[in-house]
Design a protein around this nucleic acid. Structure first.
Lengths: 337, 337
DNA sequence: GTTAGCACTCGACAGCCAAGAGTGCTAACA
DNA sequence: TGTTAGCACTCTTGGCTGTCGAGTGCTAAC
């Protein structure tokens, strides 16, 4: 399975050219463009070998060769060197991430945008649920007669809130009392430990307002439920249009509706990848992403694993994508946790 | 400028057919499909007249005719009857809007989604700034040593928040004091009246914590600033792909990058339309939307004007789009405000 | 083992032709 | 005077053909 130096060089040249031009590359072109010290005929022999080994394929007789998925896989595994980001780009990103005034949602959006801008592919950021974090603060605020707002703050500064309907007779004071009761009972509990059963006592203590408490608990439960969902942010979908493989509208539509479908990408990504940079090429992905490649990495925030990555055509600049994803992951690593 | 009954009927038939098929429609087809009681030859004469008047045009000799933008304009102004929604659809929407547990952002997303789903075009919802609403509540919550969260609630239940850095020496008690001071000073003020100058007094009252107050004020200012921005939600971009006019990738890309550009659509929509249903066709729009049509309506929430609408090709089912937009506007009218 | 030469293959592209859809015009008709 | 049938004409569409060029595989010479 190991290739000699010349074959490796030829494979690499073909990959680079093909990724750049999206056209099959011929023997003559490869020699000329990369200043190889051998003749086109020799290259042809080597290419025939590489094809037999499954690293190249020919769309039809008398076209040039294109790298097969297996060829890309070999390149990625055995030859690739990640391209590094410029100091300037890193600085930009660092600024976006650490600016403490912005909240989590915005930071995530920024990261996704950064990834897609630098790589020119479609990027995604998956943020783990916040359920494992700690409860910091709960507040009930009256809005109009009959409506109140329940606000829940976790120690990461994540805020969840929801409107609830309350009886007209409930006073501001009532709300305050109930709120401080909640706080007392829940102080510094982990969100995933909050269970309705823990709240019996609370309910009995303020019996005459139990319907308010019940409503609040319902709302709380809904909030907790939604906090369990990972969030997925996608950016740079437009970049797809630059790739000639998407001149086929049907393909484009299929992929776009995949992206639009709630949770669809998330489920189609490899699981349990740790925090390494992981690359899946073409048919290594699930059926409906079989002509895309994914370059992704895990990152850890507050004990949970999230994922970042980019999605592009199989004919992808893996070296650049992997370098960028890696750099972003490292930055997340040193910033969060 | 007024057409006789037969011309109107022919124009209408051609519009309906063309909108449906996206192909030029010929005289024979029109007679057959719409059971007109006249012959194709007569229709040909009428069509020639309509063309001369500018309501139809011919892509080339010996193709059928297609409605010109002026033809669509005439139809929309003088002949169109809005299609009404089914009771069922209205009920769905009403439920989505009024479910009081969901917050504003979600309701908006729902409305946009509803619009795009029913019309099968791309929809947008522009939400006016909340700056004119009243301040209800402000809270400072400590997160970690050195970090706090400032939360601002308006009486509509809109929540704005931001992390701030604070000196390590600031205690929870300090935060509480500052918070209640803010509340005292601002109680029930309109957001657009909050000005830094009003806060002199406050700053002096807690002189030893003035740096915290300043930080909080900075954050507050940023929040108010962002609250002044209208939000724009777009939904159903995918629907574009169904329209044959977007088989041209270049066109598609241009429009998509328009959508991605912050505030771009907003600036390209007609201003000051009141709450009527307003239709702009093709070149009536700004240059870079000159082959799109927009059907939109204004709606009033809490004293400010917002907009809802759909964007599609010139070859649009105006009757359906207008009916839907109108229905949603009416529902918003009776629900909000 | 490498290279040059050469015949062969196949896709891309332009040109051509036939079919079909639709028109405009004219003459006949009510 | 408005309506209709007939007919010649126009223009697009799709299929077919032949040419061109890129690229290959094979063979023989180095």
């Amino acid at each position: 399975m190991t290739l000699d130096e010349r074959k490796r060089q030829i494979l690499q040249s073909i990959i680079k050219d093909y990724v750049e031009t999206a056209e099959p590359v011929g023997s003559r072109a490869v020699v000329r463009k990369h200043d190889l010290k051998i003749s086109a005929a020799t290259v042809r022999n080597e290419m025939a070998d590489l094809e037999e080994m499954g690293y190249l394929e020919q769309p039809h007789t008398s076209a040039g060769r294109i790298p097969s998925e297996r060829g890309f896989r070999y390149y990625v595994d055995c030859m690739m060197e990640n391209e590094t980001l410029s100091e300037e780009q890193l600085e930009d990103l660092r600024k976006a991430i650490t600016s403490s005034v912005r909240d989590l949602d915005q930071v995530i959006a920024q990261i996704a945008q950064f990834l897609s801008q630098i790589t020119r592919y479609t990027s995604f950021v998956i943020v783990p649920s916040v359920s494992a974090t700690q409860f910091r603060y709960l507040q009930l605020i009256s809005l109009n007669p009959g409506q109140a707002l329940i606000i829940l703050v976790t120690d990461l500064g994540v805020i969840m809130h929801r409107k609830i309907d309350i009886p007209l007779s409930v006073t501001n004071e009532d709300l305050e009392n109930i709120g401080s009761l909640f706080n007392k009972v829940f102080a510094s509990r982990r969100l995933d430990e909050l269970r309705r059963t823990d709240l019996r006592a609370l309910r009995e203590e303020l019996y005459q307002r139990r319907n308010v408490i019940d409503t609040a608990l319902d709302a709380l439960e809904l909030l907790l439920q939604s906090s369990k969902e990972e969030r997925v942010v996608v950016s740079g979908v437009l970049n797809l249009l630059n790739e000639p493989e998407f001149k086929d509208l049907e393909k484009l539509r299929r992929f776009l509706s995949l992206l639009e479908e709630e949770g669809a990408i998330k489920n189609r990504l490899p699981q349990d990848i740790g925090d390494n940079v992981n690359i899946t090429i073409g048919r290594e992905n699930p059926e409906d992403m079989k002509d895309m490649s994914v370059v992704m990495a895990g990152y850890k925030t507050f004990g949970e694993m999230g994922k970042i990555g980019v999605i592009g055509p199989v004919r992808m600049e893996y070296w650049r994508a992997a370098g960028t994803v890696e750099a972003v992951r490292d930055l997340l690593k040193e910033t969060f946790y």
